[in-house]
């Protein structure tokens, strides 16, 4: 089985977000980088599929030179090799991102045969576009399932579960297919030290696709105005319990 998993390098946003002067990016002077939670799980799922069925898992990113760090991270938990579509750091909209990925998939498949499963995060942690997976699927004429929290593959068919009101919806689609996963589909492993060492020598194929005109053109980022709340302190330690009970009672939840 061949599995491709797509990841995106994003700032490890934790507290207050501050922007660069041109208001087109998050100021990352004091912030690290990571892949989003959905994609961490997508990488884990790719590695598990190959552990269960044999074959190879390939991790792909479209991002700046520094995104090599995220590719190495994925390879350190078991991805076999990487494809790096190198950008100059400019924002790419979802449509052009999907287009570049489709180009890379076609090139890899021409040499190595089809990817049975293409895994993506359900939505990117930063841009939240909800569409790269279905655009890849459409371009390649493959089925796409989204919002997936459970996946199993047997006899050329993927069974995928999606959370719905009071239960889960089950899809069955023929492979090859595109699967957009949510955090919670698994609990990703941590890389081991030998895993990290092995990742350093795994192959990375790099190319620099052209960035087309952006049809969803990001112009400016804005940190939403929130009312700066001043929490009313009910007390300290266990002694605050009575004040909490009075609060619960006054808001009608007791």
């Amino acid at each position: 089985m061949r599995v491709l998993v797509c990841v995106k390098r994003v700032p490890a946003v934790a507290g207050l977000i501050t922007l660069t002067e041109d208001e087109r990016a998050i100021d990352t002077k004091y912030v690290g980088f990571q892949v989003g939670p959905h994609e961490e799980c997508a990488v884990e799922e790719a590695v598990r599929l190959v552990e269960a069925h044999g074959g190879e898992s390939v991790v792909l990113t479209l991002g700046p030179a520094e995104a090599l760090e995220q590719l190495r991270e994925a390879m350190s938990i078991g991805a076999n090799r990487a494809i790096h579509l190198v950008t100059d750091g400019a924002d790419w909209d979802a449509e052009s991102t999907a287009g570049a990925i489709v180009g890379a998939i076609r090139a890899d498949e021409a040499a190595n045969g089809p990817f049975d499963v293409v895994l993506v995060g359900n939505e990117a942690a930063d841009s939240g576009g909800y569409q790269v997976g279905v655009r890849i699927a459409r371009a390649l004429g493959r089925p796409a399932v989204t919002g997936i929290k459970g996946l199993s593959v047997a006899d050329g068919t993927a069974r995928a579960e999606q959370e719905a009101a009071s239960g889960r919806n089950v899809f069955e689609v023929k492979l090859p297919a595109v699967v957009a996963v949510l955090e919670g589909i698994n609990l990703p492993r941590y890389p081991s030290v030998p895993g990290r060492l092995r990742a350093k020598s795994k192959p990375v194929a790099s190319s620099s696709p052209d960035r087309p005109a952006q049809r969803l053109e990001m112009r400016r980022l804005v940190v939403p105005a929130t009312e700066a709340k001043q929490a009313q302190v009910l007390g300290r330690g266990a002694e605050a319990a009575q004040a909490v009970v009075e609060l619960l009672s006054s808001v009608g939840v007791l």
Partner: peptide, 28 residues
């Protein structure tokens, strides 16, 4: 950071505060 989003706060260790709240609810 949660304090900037909160309306009410209790400053203390949850391991002490939560059981005290539960006990106070039972008493009430």
């Amino acid at each position: 950071p949660i304090m900037t989003a909160a309306d009410y706060a209790v400053i203390g260790d949850m391991a002490e505060v939560l059981p005290a709240i539960s006990a106070a609810i039972r008493r009430a």
